[in-house]
Design a protein around this nucleic acid. Structure first.
Lengths: 366, 366
DNA sequence: CACGTTCTTGTAAACGTTTACAAGAGGGCC
DNA sequence: GGCCCTCTTGTAAACGTTTACAAGAACGTG
């Protein structure tokens, strides 16, 4: 309500002196005292818009996520917040919906002066979106796989390697007929994970069977898993393991298994992806592939901060390698000891930025 | 990057005409065409700060939550977003941390021009916070219980009634020795729920036993429930039911029960609160008290919109009544039919704004 | 005492919009 | 043809800050 002009008048100084006194620039002790007193009395709060307009920066960053209900993004967000707090930035979270249109509109509005930089983690990335990003007046870091490398600061998981980890672990613990419940295959993660599962099965000769959920959610996962398990049983080839494209879908698989009288892990092993909080909360606890959400968040924040400091630097890509977190849902079916001594958990690999070497060597990350 | 001045120059008109043409005010068709073409070519995006500074509004609202990891807030947030979208507002989410200091700092900064209004749902409310809220230059709606009624637009759950619902349901299904795992008692919800549990037990003569978690989280709930169940068993008076102060704590209770070899629901019934997504994802599915998160979010949004339209209107309070959502975790221990026919779910009560009548009639809501 | 140096202060010009006001253009009507 | 009315346009003043610049004050030094 109170403006700087009123504060200055009350303190009996010019508006410039008031500004300087409040911002710690050269001002006599007496002026500082007068101005701060006046400001306190008037409950003066500087107008962020005017300040931003003049200074050209706001001290705020935004994190645009596809689904605020997914705990993966919560972890990323916390990591981002921790990383940027030290530099004095604040983080606003924004749900960008799942369509490109709403996403574009939101990005434009945020980037038009409310924030100094953006981190976005979209489910669907197309050229229209990228063209839009390139035109924004603030730097953007994209978390997720881009259609073509370069051009943007970018952090991604190697979810193909993650799927391979899951399949290998199941083989080592004696499973042979493995199903896969994917997320929508028109999303980048869905496509990549689906291809990786096929490749892993081909490589190992595993009997595979698949279903596709309409979304990366519990409800969609339940429906798809129900269909997957039912079809396999009806064909006389019941599955002994399921890999789910994320932990929510894995939770849906738990319920589908229970409906069919299957016990986890003795009848059916389940592996999730993301290692979200849910994995430790389910019973039995869920073996899950940690795709390094927090690590990705931290890297994204660091890339953004670096670019804010040095706008002209070349775009960088970081790939975060997965780690398998073994829990109860994949215990060996008959008490047989798995071929590798499985510790309770495997420490997640926090890969250093892969600045050297070809960025796509690990094969279709995300 | 491009400013309105450059657009105007390119279109060969004055800056004022350019502004009018883009904002749909009186302008000749020819001017509109020239200006929009120039704007498109230059990829012009209006500077939100300058516009906000002049117009006095931003079209953005903020939702400040205590814990972005808690699904309750996700549901509230979605409801808020749905309700305000129609009016053309966008919602930014901000994690306010759990301390009053960080909260105050954040509120100040947001309210200093980035948003037109705020909805906050703090865990701890004290007079310092309220004094700060009163000085903000934008309207605020508080979701949660206030120390004294009035002064602010306010939405709250009746969580005391919710606890009573839970206890009564357990009694009706034959449970007699009921434990309670509360959240921190220095938070408003923790205090209210603890008092309500004591009152419900006194009223019904139930044998009670309690533990307090250090936080409304899974990990804290697991520790507290472990201690609660262990102490009761050691005393030779094992519990046959537990009420948890929220669903995350209930999930922790599931794990504590499993550790002690207790089966849910035959050995131990569990009731959660919030009816978050987790309740349906756990196995067995969790009976939970729906405190109307989405309904509260919608009401909060409506109160805020109403105040933005009419700043001088009197502050209003809305109380949302709870509903018990019965699931598997409280099935009768020995197949006995509960005294009321329990449907799969009870529709949540969406109480209309209690504009008439004393606002605190329902007894310590939240 | 004159002079240069440093420190503080005020004036005024930005930042990129919107908008009140006035002026000009074009037409209809008598 | 003159007059009034409407429609469009440009000029300029805001919105609330920050900051370059110049001017003045205080002060030590030769």
């Amino acid at each position: 309500m109170a403006t700087l002009m009123e504060v200055a008048r009350r303190a009996g100084v010019s508006i410039a002196s008031a500004s300087r006194a409040l911002n710690g620039e050269s001002a006599s002790p007496r002026t500082v005292e007068l101005v701060t007193a006046a400001a306190r009395e008037l409950a003066y709060v500087p107008d962020a818009r005017a300040r931003g307009l003049k200074r050209g920066s706001t001290g705020q960053l935004a994190f645009g996520v596809a689904d605020v209900g997914n705990h993966v993004y919560v972890e990323m967000m916390r990591a981002v917040e921790d990383a940027v707090r030290a530099e004095g930035y604040r983080v606003l979270i924004s749900s960008v919906g799942s369509t490109v249109e709403t996403e574009v509109e939101l990005l434009r509005s945020l980037a038009s002066g409310y924030v100094d930089g953006l981190i976005i983690s979209p489910l669907r990335v197309d050229d229209e979106l990228l063209a839009e990003l390139a035109q924004l007046r603030v730097p953007v870091v994209v978390v997720g796989l881009l259609p073509q490398p370069g051009g943007f600061d970018n952090v991604r998981a190697n979810s193909a390697a993650g799927v391979a980890l899951a399949v290998e672990h199941l083989l080592e613990t004696g499973r042979r007929r493995i199903g896969f419940v994917n997320g929508p295959e028109d999303t980048t993660p869905g496509r990549v994970r689906g291809e990786a599962f096929g490749a892993a099965c081909d490589r190992t000769g595993v009997v595979e069977r698949r279903a596709v959920a309409s979304d990366f959610t519990f409800a969609a996962g339940l429906l798809a898993a129900r269909q997957l398990l039912g079809a396999a049983a009806a064909a006389g080839e019941p599955l002994d393991a399921v890999v789910a494209a994320n932990d929510l879908i894995a939770a849906g698989t738990y319920h589908a298994a229970a409906e069919q009288g299957l016990t986890i892990p003795s009848d059916l092993a389940v592996v999730g992806m993301d290692d979200s909080a849910l994995a430790a909360q389910l019973l039995p606890t869920l073996t899950s592939v940690d795709l390094g959400a927090a690590v990705r968040g931290r890297h994204a924040a660091e890339l953004l901060l670096a670019r804010l400091r040095e706008p002209g630097r070349p775009a960088q890509s970081v790939v975060v390698e997965p780690a398998l977190i073994v829990r109860s849902s994949t215990a060996a079916p008959d008490g047989a000891v798995p071929s590798v001594a499985a510790p309770a958990t495997t420490a997640p690999a926090t890969t250093a930025p892969s600045t050297a070497g070809p960025p796509y060597e690990a094969g279709d990350p995300t």
